[in-house]
Design a protein around this nucleic acid. Structure first.
Length: 271
DNA sequence: ATCCAGGAAGTCG
DNA sequence: CGACTTCATGGA
């Protein structure tokens, strides 16, 4: 116990395993029974879930915002409760919180995520941090755009990035050269999506993930292979990413991003 | 061995 | 616009 510790007593609205395993973050690990190490940018915290959730770090203000602690998830779940598929999804993933993460880290992370498995995404990102991130006490920071831009595609290919390797070097170069990752904060969801899609390796789905996990825009709906399965369950038919997104946003409205996380987690947990 | 993964880019109608 | 193909990698 320490004055820097954050104690979250409302366990119904915060389950650390669900929050970490719903695919919005790739730099974390289980370090003990119900104890997780979480890395973001150049920071680290340790989260233990018992009677309450305890977040240990040396920067509680950062992690307070990171875990979205000022947001009322009870109210969000009540507003979604009577919408399609929500009852069972919230039943299995009701402790999910949508994190407030760093835009550049999300940009790179979700470029790597394209057509990839989560365990492999974690490995590639860990190697990028180890190779280019500042060495901290027991871990590595996420690298800066300048550090990443200094390497070419061959470097990322050697780390196992596959055909995404040139996307990483080119997009890091664009950011280092002034592509402004603050702009999306002042744009509508659709406008910000188009803006991010001008970067190499960023398409509509990756852009939606960045908008949701870095900018907390909840009127977006990342459509991946799992959400396509959910759409099939709901309607009995297949659809393109574009039409699935349009349909699901019309169903869940301004809470689309939250609904998407509950659906994604529920589908992956219960196949 | 074959399939698949938090898809995007390139090409062709 | 939409459909269709290709793109590395490795775990299941």
């Amino acid at each position: 116990m320490d004055t820097n510790d954050i104690i979250v007593k409302n366990r119904e609205d915060f389950d650390i395993r669900q929050t970490l395993d719903c695919g919005q973050i790739f730099r974390y690990s289980l370090v003990g029974e119900n104890v997780y190490e979480v890395l973001s940018l150049d920071k680290r915290c340790v989260v233990e879930q018992g009677e309450s959730v305890v977040i240990k770090s040396d920067d509680p203000a950062y992690w307070h915002r990171f875990f979205d602690l000022d947001n009322d998830y009870g109210a969000i779940k009540r507003a979604l409760a009577d919408k399609p598929m929500m009852r069972e999804s919230i039943d299995s993933g009701g402790g999910i919180r949508i994190l407030n993460q760093d835009p550049f880290e999300m940009l790179i992370s979700f470029i790597v995520s394209a057509n990839n498995h989560i365990p492999r995404i974690k490995g590639i990102l860990a190697r990028i941090c180890e190779g280019l991130g500042e060495k901290k006490d027991g871990y590595f920071a996420f690298p800066t755009a300048e550090a990443m831009a200094a390497k070419d595609a061959d470097y990322y290919a050697a780390l196992g990035a596959g055909y995404r390797a040139p996307y990483l070097s080119e997009t890091a170069r664009a950011v280092a050269d002034g592509f402004d990752l603050e702009n999306p904060r002042y744009m509508s969801g659709d406008e910000a999506n188009r803006y991010l899609c001008t970067l190499k390796g960023v398409g509509p789905k990756v852009a939606d993930c960045i908008l949701l996990f870095a900018y907390h825009k909840s009127d977006v709906f990342p459509v991946d292979t799992w959400i396509k399965k959910v759409y099939r369950d709901m309607t009995g038919k297949d659809g393109t990413g574009k039409e699935i997104r349009k349909y699901l946003v019309s169903v869940y409205g301004d809470l689309s991003g939250y609904a998407q996380q509950y659906l994604f987690f529920g589908k992956r947990e219960n196949n």
